[in-house]
Design a protein around this nucleic acid. Structure first.
Lengths: 262, 262
DNA sequence: AAGTGGTCTAGACCACAAC
DNA sequence: TTGTGGTCTAGACCACTTG
């Protein structure tokens, strides 16, 4: 099938951009990727479920299996789907992922994370508030819009290590309770998927070294002169829509933030 | 060409691992990737140069162009090679890269890095020393082996922002001088490539929040109560051989460390 | 016009998982 | 045995760069 002979009901295939300037050529597999992405966003297949086989998708979009394959290759590289030979291709999920915390880069200095086990969570606070200017900007809301704010402490092996403030858009997370945050077994992001249909696909972090205020120091069991790693994270769903702002303070006396540069 | 009918002089192709246990099946394109990697390590093509075309490599290794293509795709994904349509495939280099500092994640809080221009480097110190236990461990040397140690300050827009201590294996960097570190235009990693034939292909960083000692504070123009971001980086050449240990202190009052999580 | 990487196809066969 | 993803091939054509 050539890029200039599209057709097919399900496949708006081909057709370059109609804008001015560059003709905006887009390869077929990119267009297919976009169509699959739309289905993912629309919830046609839920997290953890299998998407149709490559042959089925090829038939649906009237392209060759190889073209579908390349589209799925990119979705897999973006961690939106997971391929399993002999079984199928599955929508990625924060639950049932062998890495417990996909976005958490804090590791113990000695041994590995599996030794210290899962974090103990203590919810300090969870309430509805109006968005301040900076929270609104981060979540692309208006100042004063309803947001959910939570504060919690994560402890490893009994030692409080992370203090987090979390802001969520009130609209999408209506009804979220402190009870829910505290009692859900597994990653919080998995709860967001299951209870609210919000799947975080990527995140950006800004790191700084800071000193805690007295309240923060007390919650982490350190004094006000102990430097802490400040981690501001914005997590995004599909389409680069921000759905969570998280400000964390990490103790780095027994742990460190690991980053791989490629 | 099937995986069970190898042959060809240049292509030890196929042939699964001879070890016990799993037959260690390895796809052809992985083997081709390994062969190209060997040529890169051996310096058959220097950084910035073009490698042979896909057709040439296909002929050399007696495989189809598509198989070579998949091998090069992975090398490009690893940033070992850069593809340029219509021109060829080139060995990646730290020079002539549009991102000035490939491994530096520190950005100014306002505006972008291009506005504040290149860093001003001040070499504080550069001498041969014997490796301490922890430096030796990081560089996979023996305690007491000769290493080169340098200390420098990077300033942006006149403000000292980064203090770095750098350790390099004495063997590979014989003859490196403070003058050379100070006067080379462009990234230090580019100088390593050109003057010493050492190309860094990836790095790992451990981040912590710390307080500086008096000497460190003085060099950065801050007081001893100012928390700083400690960044310990180990940079690797081909084959996961560590070739540099770098301990940096970053001021995060005007800059932040940015990280993307996917 | 020639050469390079980029896309797309169709078909064969392999490895893996489940029935 | 069947169906899934994974590999490999051969050939056609497109897009970009250079002479």
């Amino acid at each position: 099938m050539s890029n200039t002979t599209p057709a097919a009901p399900e496949a708006p295939a081909a057709i370059s951009g109609s804008g001015q300037g560059t003709p905006a050529f887009s390869p077929l597999y990119q267009q297919i990727k976009g169509l699959i992405l739309q289905s993912l966003q629309a919830g046609e297949w839920k997290p953890g479920e299998a998407i149709p086989s490559e042959m089925e998708l090829a038939a649906r979009f009237r392209v060759s299996q190889g073209t579908v394959r390349k589209a799925i290759d990119e979705l897999a590289a973006d961690n939106l789907v997971v391929r399993r030979q002999g079984k199928g291709t599955f929508v990625a999920t924060h639950a049932e992922q062998h890495v417990q915390y996909r976005f958490l880069r804090l590791l113990p200095d000695t041994g590995d994370a599996s030794e210290e086990g899962p974090a103990q969570r203590s919810i300090i606070d969870c309430k509805r508030v109006r968005a301040s200017a900076d929270v609104a900007r981060a979540l692309q809301l208006r100042t004063g819009d309803a947001v959910l704010q939570a504060r919690r402490v994560l402890a490893f092996a009994g030692t409080p290590t992370i203090l987090e403030d979390i802001w969520l858009p009130g609209q999408a997370f209506k009804g979220l309770t402190a009870q829910q945050m505290a009692s859900y077994p597994g990653p919080t992001y998995a709860m967001f998927e299951i209870d609210f249909g919000v799947r975080m696909v990527r995140a950006e972090e800004k790191l700084r070294a800071v000193l805690p205020d007295t309240a923060q120091a007390r919650l982490l069991g350190v004094d006000c002169a102990t430097p802490l790693l400040s981690v501001e994270r914005i997590a995004y769903t599909y389409n680069d829509v921000p759905m969570e702002l998280r400000r964390g303070l990490y103790r780095t006396d027994t742990h460190h933030y690991r980053n791989a540069l490629n």
